[in-house]
Amino acid sequence: MHAIREALAAVRRAPLLTGLSAGMVALALYVVGLFGLATYNLHQALTRVEERVEVVAYVRDDVRDEEITMAEQDLLGMEEVEEIRFISKEQALLAAREDLPEFEDLFTGMDVNPLPASLEIVLRPGFRTPDVVARVANRLSVYPFVEDVRYGQEWVDRLYLLQRIGAMATMFLGGAFALVAGLIIGTAIRIAIFARREEIYIMRLVGATNGFIRRPFLLEGGLTGLLGGILAAAFTFASYLVVSRAVFQLDWMPLDWILMGIAAGTVFGVLASAFAVRKYLKEV
């Protein structure tokens, strides 16, 4: 097909220019890729911390089993609650001995177990927010057998704030990076098309249709975006490897993110070309 031949011929005729614009596109998308990698890892880290958000209710020693069972059933009826674990006094002591081996002597010397039994309430993802935590804690505190409720109010608040900041940063910084990448890609493609304005002029002069003129440019723009996107993904992966080996272990982004980035680069390349070539199709 003419469009494919022309797009390839353009690469052959001006390899430096095509390479340069693909390189510019790759660099622009690389920045976006790095940002994506950072965002993804931040998000992962926050999720891991968030998974530890739970409400703990310490229970009186004289509690009856039926009371616990009833409370468990009641709490499981709340949509915010994912799981409830009952930790008996013995389990609590066992855990304490494991966690604090340096106090082993103290533990063996005791004839009464001073640790209370407790209910650990794990919240569903999406409900690990300060107000839900407070609501569940309030609900727990009304049971007569509950002595004390702990959930690290301050800590949950701070985590929540951090998540909000993360989301905002992703939105604004990500938007800004994408915009800059878009401008760079658009400019690279405009330069590539400017270099071929004479050809466009001749095509118009001898009677090529606009669609026919446009097609190879759209293809070239798409190819530039695709190539740039693949290169950017490779650069980002290389950076991930380097950081993981030399600094700290990162998580690699899910495949959908990569594919979406490359697809976005390709689509943008096509659109930018369509926009840039429009100007020349209006002349003469």
């Binding site: 003419h2 004479e198 050809e199 002029y201 001749i202 095509m203 002069l205 001898v206 009677g207 090529a208």
Partner: peptide, 30 residues
């Protein structure tokens, strides 16, 4: 444009292409 031929004082050939390629280009794009 397919019914009217145009020539100019400054020729307006595509540089870097041979005489034949210049003609072929016009044939190809029409």
């Amino acid at each position: 444009r397919r019914r009217v031929g145009m020539v100019f004082q400054d020729f307006r050939l595509l540089p870097g292409r041979t005489a034949r390629e210049n003609v072929e280009f016009a044939l190809e794009v029409t």
